[in-house]
Design a protein around this nucleic acid. Structure first.
Lengths: 230, 230
DNA sequence: ACCTGAACACCGTTCAAGT
DNA sequence: ACCTGAACACCGTTCAAGT
């Protein structure tokens, strides 16, 4: 709405900057260059404007990030959720993970700034609901959600750093350490080198997620029918 | 050794700077003010020196962090490890978690820079060894370690941000969101407010850790004797 | 209403020069 | 051997001023 003209009906020079334009430029930098390259000064240069002009349209960098994050989550497809509660819990966690895996810059924003949007709340609500449907008490369900969240965010962060190192053509310090191990001091790790590298490369979020969820369900162990697994 | 005199036997004006002095000043800033306040310039001022003088003693900020982290892990008490493999795995994870919980600045260093020290390797080796003793294959053991690590680092990061917000007298965005929920849109979350706040405040790492470990053991399900839990 | 310039208070790091 | 000053290339943000 009126992104090129100040008042409807009145033609005029389009505004050079607008919230929308700023947001989409910022998103471009984030996805193409990563969160570490988004700065107000850089963004202004990108738009051939000045850093201070941005401050007319957004309060500060934090607000900018929040707006970007909200726009992202709002665009989330409202996935079909399975009926079986354990499956529903898993699906919720997968959606959460998938969304953030597609959008690495958001991982840091979400962990360090800890922003919240309504769509995120919807997802959390549905996961806790599923946990309750699995037979958990309210307290257990909230706790289960938290454990799943810790696992998810941890996996994403490690993944993010791996990809950053990759982009710079480096190895992760862990990879370096594994490659130059003293086999006398660390006989087991030395023998596991290949598994380590292989596991680091693959995507095992789903597999670990099932272990976490089933561990949580077994801990409650109130609903033997749904807590079981093949 | 020779922290105040350049050459043994030769008395003289003590060097104003030294690696040790730099490291301990840096550690003071980190523990008392947090990682976000440690900068080369700030550190130099603290020691009534100049930023550039530091660069004679350490290569760059990254090396400084690595040295600090190594010093920390080297000081780790070599804990007595239980014999029972599941307990040993749990004990390893607890040690890892406890060490980082005591040392919040290291959490960020460890996740974002991903440093590795020999003591950390020892701990990882012993955890993987315990996992194998639980009946896991090498591949499963490495994978189990990773899942535990993700969970641990995720818990620590969320905790860190909570404490940072506390120190600034703020609420976490999640706490704010929970307090201003629309009960019609999120009926379950609205009812769970109290559990949420309570769980966020307490330390439930151990409880979640057991769920994660038992979930992993059940997934392997090769060693029924050790995979069970009371 | 929208944008600019200059300024403030920061970063990490390099490099030639001093003692 | 150890340290300094000046400089480079960055940050986020404020504030008074311009059109």
């Amino acid at each position: 709405m009126e992104s090129w003209s100040q008042r409807p009906g009145r033609l005029g020079r389009p505004r050079r900057l607008s919230r929308e334009a700023i947001l989409s430029s910022a998103e471009r930098i984030l996805t193409e260059e990563g969160a570490e390259h988004l700065s107000m000064r850089r963004l202004a240069k990108e738009m051939s404007s000045t850093p201070m002009a941005l401050y007319y349209h957004v309060k500060d960098k934090d607000e900018l990030l929040t707006l970007l994050l909200d726009a992202r989550t709002e665009r989330l497809p409202r996935a079909e959720l399975p009926h079986e509660p354990r499956e529903r819990l898993l699906a919720g966690a997968r959606t959460l993970h998938g969304m953030l895996a597609d959008c690495p810059w958001a991982v840091e924003a979400v962990t360090s700034e800890d922003h919240v949007s309504a769509s995120a709340l919807r997802l959390v609500e549905s996961m806790i609901d599923a946990a309750v449907a699995c037979g958990m008490s309210h307290e257990e369900a909230v706790y289960a959600y938290r454990v799943i969240w810790y696992y998810t965010i941890g996996e994403l962060l490690v993944r993010l750093n791996r990809e950053r190192a990759r982009r710079k053509g480096e190895d992760t310090p862990w990879e370096r350490a594994m490659l130059s191990l003293d086999p006398d001091a660390f006989p087991l790790l030395a023998r596991l080198r290949d598994q380590w590298v292989e596991l680091a490369a693959g995507d095992h979020h789903q597999r670990g997620l099932e272990a976490v969820v089933d561990g949580l369900l077994a801990q409650g162990a109130v609903c033997p029918g749904t807590a079981g697994h093949p």
